[in-house]
Nucleic acid binder design. Structure first.
Length: 606
RNA sequence: GGGGAGUUAGUUCAGUUGGUUAGAACGCCGGCCUGUCACGCCGGAGGCCACGGGUUCAAGUCCCGUACUCCUCGCCA
């Protein structure tokens, strides 16, 4: 009597598949109860699987038994049904792909009942994120997450086929490697067989992929997990996925072409959008000046105006002592214009100051430009000389009603505050197009950054990227005399304010390499101890090579319009790196610790 | 490590200047209903107000601390 679902009665279709072309067919669907509408006489069920929803109707005069059982159905029961596809006549549901049909059920089996779920499995969930993470397996039943993960699967497939078509080999590298200093903090794995020693989880396959080039593999790629023990953000997880690429015998442009082709294909096949190539290129220093960071969102203007030189010219006589002092102490002065056609109330601009302070600023000087170029609503207006005011107005191309925002002081802080302010204001003014409604995709390469950064704390030069980045040939002469001047073949690919990838042409000339180490204050012995195997490798006919890594999670986030990386990672971690579902990281027992020769240090009492 | 926001029913939220028995919606339970698709109608259960101190005649409400979550600066070659 009972229909043997699964063993003999096999699924014939998914829940997103049937249309009026199938009317009259006998079908079998498996899935979950998304919704029920029990009219007593007729029971309607929306059956869900990853492909969509299909309405199933149980009526007593069609199948008495199934109808009675259907009365027991509740949300999220896992069931199988058999029945006939029928037209809904005039009662179509335009919201569903399958909205023109329904299944008149003749058989029903309940595979598994469900307790009431801690939150409703629905598309537009507003449940707190920690509860969703604690029951991630339920959260993952929701359509947006299902679609994100299906998109990721597609991205992986597209990437593999594109890379393989372009002669790339997918080669694997170890997760557990040797700790190398510098860069991100590593996760450490104690070695049981080697007491007191530790592996480091790879923060990227950087060194290994260079060795592939030395070995002659020529073109390598890998979709690979990377691990970094740094603080999390909405676009940063402790473990994340990169599309890692390395190529021999190439220039920077060759790498750009490959990556532009990949992105074009991803956007084309996933979104049906044609991304124009080649991407725009912007000098690192231009990006810092105009946007305050090296990952500008070019979907809107609101460019910064650097006023440092202007303030310098007017000197102490300019009438704005605070700006003058900032410049004298080696700082910079920047301005930004909130245009008059997007007026901002006094209260709103006061909130901007709050925002600036949250980002580390001491305050936010503002001025509203009046008819004759005079400044109002500004403490600056009392002391500033007309000449400087006019010069600033001119530099900012300020018009009546514009609101000028100023930041001055330490260069890095001014950049950070103004960069965040720029994005914040753009959001407030509605300058950023919504995803989906004609979403705008502004790709660019940020190129020619400095090879070194000056570390204020240690008063030394440090590698801005890593110690194996190739400097511009014409700058090699300054490596030791003027390190800050040396630019390098490093590049970031940026989309809508997110760094989606970065890489460099590597140093393969041992002579220049030695000079770079010298500039960094790394002795031969240090270099040998830290990077010995790579230095050795470079001595044996290493080919010129370079590469790049794209952040797969960020790409997926942008492609799907997700607001957080957590929405494109199946099992993400919280801000503090915990997994609320499994409880990781968790305690281990003493024996396990003894096995790996580790003893926890008690936390200091507060 | 610094700054900010939050925590009230299973979920999302409301809760007045501190003042009787802490409310609503959805979900859940029981009943009715043959054309719903946010189904509808009737009835019901469900709360250590995150935790620990304090102020007060009286604390969900005020103060201090802790935990957790989120945002952000630092950090992330």
């Amino acid at each position: 009597m009972a229909v043997p679902f699964i063993t003999e009665v096999k699924r014939t279709h998914t829940c997103g598949q049937l249309t009026k072309a199938n009317i009259g067919e006998e079908v079998v669907l498996f899935g979950w109860v998304q919704n029920r509408r029990d009219h007593g006489g007729a029971v309607f069920i929306d059956l869900r699987d990853r492909e969509g929803l299909t309405q199933v109707v149980f009526e007593p005069d069609i199948a008495k038994e199934a109808h009675e059982l259907a009365g027991q159905l509740r949300l999220e029961y896992c069931i199988g049904i058999k029945g006939k596809v029928a037209s809904r006549g005039t009662q179509v549901n335009p919201k569903l792909k399958t909205g023109e049909i329904e299944i008149k059920a003749t058989e029903l089996t309940i595979f598994n009942r469900s307790e009431p779920t801690p939150f409703l499995v629905e598309d537009n969930i507003d449940t707190a994120e920690d509860k969703r993470l604690a029951y991630r397996f339920l959260d993952l039943r929701r359509k947006p997450l299902q679609q994100s993960l299906m998109t990721r699967s597609k991205m992986n497939a597209i990437t593999r086929s594109y890379m393989v078509d372009n002669r790339f080999l997918e080669l694997e590298t170890p997760f557990m490697g040797k700790y190398t200093p510098g860069g991100a903090r590593n996760f450490l794995v104690p070695s049981r067989l080697n007491p007191g020693k530790f592996y480091a989880l790879a923060e990227s396959p950087q060194l290994y992929k260079q060795l592939f080039m030395v070995a002659g593999f020529d073109r390598y790629f890998q979709i690979v997990k990377c691990f970094r023990d740094e603080d999390l953000r909405l676009d940063r997880q402790p473990e994340f996925t990169q599309i890692d690429v390395e190529m021999s015998f190439v220039t920077q442009d060759d790498i750009f072409t490959i990556i532009e082709g990949l992105i074009k294909k991803l956007w084309g096949e996933v979104l049906g959008i044609d991304v124009p190539t080649p991407f725009m290129r912007m000098d690192f220093y231009e990006s810092m000046a105009k946007y305050g960071n090296d990952k500008p969102d070019l979907r809107f203007a609101l460019e910064h105006i650097v006023l440092t030189d202007l303030i310098k010219q007017h000197g102490a006589g300019g009438g704005v002592p605070m700006m003058w002092e900032a410049v004298e102490q080696g700082g910079i002065v920047k301005a930004m214009v909130v245009p008059a056609d997007k007026p901002m109330s006094r209260a709103e601009s006061d909130k901007l100051e709050e925002f600036a302070k949250q980002n580390g600023a001491k305050g936010l000087a503002r001025a509203k430009v009046g008819e004759g170029g005079e400044w109002t609503q500004s403490p600056l207006s009392k002391t500033i000389t007309p000449a400087l005011r006019q010069a600033i107005n001119q530099a900012c191309n300020a018009k009546t009603g514009d609101l000028l925002l100023f930041q001055f002081g330490r260069e890095s802080l001014v950049h950070t505050v103004m960069a965040n302010l720029r994005v914040h204001v753009a959001k407030k003014l509605g300058l950023i197009p919504e995803y989906g409604s004609g979403g705008v995709w502004k790709f660019l390469w940020v190129v020619n950054p400095p090879l070194f950064e000056y570390d204020e704390e240690t008063k030394t030069w440090a590698a801005a990227h890593h110690a194996f980045t190739r400097p511009h040939d014409e700058d090699v002469q300054y490596l030791l005399t003027d390190p800050g001047r040396v630019k390098c073949h490093r590049y970031d690919v940026v989309l809508n304010g997110f760094e989606i990838g970065g890489g460099s042409i590597r140093l393969h000339d041992p002579k220049v390499q030695a000079e770079v180490f010298k500039a960094l204050g790394i002795s031969d012995e240090d270099a040998r101890a830290k990077f010995g195997f790579l230095l050795d490798a470079l001595k044996f006919g290493a080919p010129p090579h370079g590469g790049i890594a794209l952040g797969m999670d960020r790409l997926a986030m942008l492609l799907t319009g997700a607001e957080s990386l957590r929405d494109v990672i199946p099992f993400p971690k919280t801000k503090t790196g915990t997994d609320l579902m499994t409880g990781a990281p968790g305690d281990v027992d003493d024996k396990q610790l003894r096995d790996v020769h580790v003893r926890p240090v008690p936390l200091p009492q507060k």
